[in-house]
Design a binder for these strands. Structure first.
Lengths: 159, 159
DNA sequence: TGACTAACGTTTGCTCCACGAACGTTAGCA
DNA sequence: TGCTAACGTTCGTGGAGCAAACGTTAGTCA
């Protein structure tokens, strides 16, 4: 993700935002490699996991639960349906909707991906002690909660 | 960067790789907004900063110093040259090279971007105490050093 | 009943960042 | 004199995230 550097350490390399981006890049690469070794990608995992957690649902609902944009949801469901990991059936009660559900093969794939993902977390945090790992996730959570104020699900006033 | 979530907290939301990616997304957004408010982007800042730190240089050298791919360097120099922030002059000693150098306007723009960037760091780390900020960057650095082994600049055996 | 509104699924396209392949030009070396 | 390698440039790829538009379908209200 990065080219060979000549000697001078660039001035931005100490910035938290840069460290964060670089480290996230490594994490993304690790997870991506782990997933693609089983023929999947991030969206696939998120959709499969959401399906197992929430049960069959329409694409729009799945998008809201998984944070996958509707535009991307279409392709994701297509991919998984092509592989027989997921089924797309018209909702008899509402012909606008497609009900997407997990197949046994999809559930097995999800098991594999869960395992891979756990391995990747370990590889990602390899240089940290258990205490440091806890600190790290705590700090990240704190930041994330802060920056998700008002952006995540601002509407609790529905009617 | 994220859609409204329905109630169920997804199973991947506690994973360090996810927290990292989300937080990095926020950081990226913050910095991107800060930069674009002054009509710049990440590559622009990196090139300007590299020019101030290393002095005028060929595009290839700048690419190596800043981690910007040569392909993207072309467009970046074009952008900045169009705005008069940078000058591209043929190297009289080597007609393959373009010597890129910073103009006074470019230096002023760099000042602005430096200021913006510092503000963004502060906004990013807002919920953390000074000690926590130090912990955070230390942990990130540790992870980054670890994952950059062998990828960053493996060649010290140049002749 | 009819009309309006809103949700759904889909397609298309855009942004940013990061790479790879190819090609013409130019230096440097044997 | 050639060969090799570096340089700059163009074109194209990819993932992740998002926005706009459009046809279809449901629900609601006059």
């Amino acid at each position: 993700m990065e080219n060979p550097r000549e000697k001078t350490p660039a001035r931005w390399e100490g910035m938290p935002s840069w460290l964060l981006g670089q480290t996230a890049g490594h994490a993304h690469r690790l997870v991506g490699e782990g997933f693609s070794a089983v023929g999947a990608r991030g969206y696939h995992y998120r959709l499969l996991a959401t399906l197992e957690d929430s049960g069959p649902a329409s694409q729009a609902t799945l998008g809201r639960c998984s944070g996958i944009h509707l535009s991307d949801m279409v392709a994701t469901v297509n991919d998984l349906a092509d592989g027989g990991l997921v089924e797309r059936a018209p909702d008899p009660a509402d012909r606008r909707r497609n009900i997407v559900s997990l197949t046994p093969a999809g559930r097995r794939q999800l098991r594999r991906l869960d395992r891979r993902l756990a391995e990747c977390q370990d590889e990602l945090l390899a240089p940290l002690s258990p205490e440091e790992r806890q600190q790290f996730t705590d700090l990240l959570s704190k930041l994330l909660v802060h920056h998700n104020r008002g952006t995540d699900a601002p509407e609790e006033r529905w009617s």
